[in-house]
Computed example of a mutant assay.
Amino acid sequence: MPRTPLDPDDATLLLSDGGIETVLLFHDGLDLPAFAAFPLLGSDRGRERLERYYRDFVDVAASAGTGFVLETPTWRASADWGAELGYGPADLTRVAHDAVALGRALRDRWTGDGPFLVSGCVGPRGDGSVPGLVMSPGDAARYHRVQVGDLAAAGADLVTATTLGDVDEATGFVMAAVEHGIPAVVGFTVETDGRLPSGAPLGEAVEEVDAATDGAAAWFMVNCAHPEHVLPGLPERPEPWAARVGAYRPNASRLSHADLDAAGTLDEGDPAELATGVAEVRRRLPALRAFGGCCGTDVRHIAALAASLAP
């Protein structure tokens, strides 16, 4: 699988967006059935709102002198979740193309010095933070193959699976990306003890996916976890697997996934404190070069990360 444009020897800092669903839900008061943002692509008003959302983060990255990774709003735009929302295969293909087109249009107006990558965002088949749906790598590859193929055909630079909670689904996702010849980023989430929801240590999960796919993933990511939850799973001294983790998108809140799901209000944490925690995670994972946010984060948090991390 091609590693470019994610060259592991390139140390260029990349920023991304924040927690798109929590911004739209709690800041804008929008209704997001199944926690899905992609239906907004179906209307002029919705597309305009998505464009404004991304533009705020793009401006932060341009001002900070970094590159930017735009994650398309397609986390829930796979077959099972789409069917729950009334979207069939042809509808989801159109969603993938519309989402990538939105990202490419923003890239056409990019004024920053660093690269601007459009990443096709893929989510877990079930709820990645709740173990239960068990698939073999082959089953996972067959499930993710269609969405990955649609995003690749639409012109995404790479595909990124976020909030994955087990090794087999991550392996299948990489297999699907290999089939379509597009670089893949595997995003694992962890619980408060630094382990995946399946119970696997983060380092073992990275090593197992690499072993099963001949190291085909462009890199790995940790997302949807506060720094205090990630740190228990990180080595104090460099280990080979740590060099494979190139991206981090933290939650603003220290709450567990279960408590976040049950919360009726948004815990936005403290942007400056979050940036300090991210810097400590970076010390333990020195290959990190791409930073965004997840649940509860908005442009304030990414601006704080830029101020803390950017040269």
Rank of each mutant, 00 (worst) to 15 (best):
L41T: 06
R300H: 14
G233H: 14
M135W: 05
G67C: 00
G123T: 03
V299W: 01
A62I: 09
D150P: 00
G264C: 02
G128F: 02
I20K: 08
T265D: 15
E207C: 06
R300K: 13
V23G: 04
L255I: 06
T163G: 02
T12K: 07
L70R: 09
G138F: 00
V245H: 00
G138W: 04
A184W: 09
A218R: 02
P183D: 13
D270W: 00
V186W: 11
P250W: 10
G292E: 09
G120Q: 13
G42F: 10
D259N: 09
T163P: 02
A99G: 11
A211M: 08
E179V: 01
P2V: 03
P227R: 12
D298V: 06
Y87P: 07
A252W: 04
V222P: 07
A61K: 08
M175T: 15
V95T: 15
P8L: 00
N223A: 02
A306I: 09
R49F: 02
V209Y: 04
E280M: 03
T265V: 13
Y54A: 04
L6V: 06
A247Y: 04
R195G: 00
P8R: 03
A252G: 11
T66H: 04
T111R: 15
D150T: 02
L288Q: 01
S63W: 03
A306R: 06
T66R: 08
A216S: 13
T22D: 11
L202A: 05
S129K: 12
D157C: 05
C295M: 05
D210Y: 02
D210R: 10
R3S: 12
T22K: 10
G120L: 13
H229S: 14
V58C: 07
S136V: 15
P2I: 05
G112S: 13
T192K: 09
L117A: 08
E71S: 12
D7Q: 14
H301F: 12
T162S: 14
L85Q: 11
D139P: 08
D127Q: 12
L133P: 02
L231Q: 01
A161H: 12
A37F: 03
V58A: 06
A306M: 11
V167A: 00
V146P: 02
R142G: 05
H229K: 12
N251C: 12
G246Y: 09
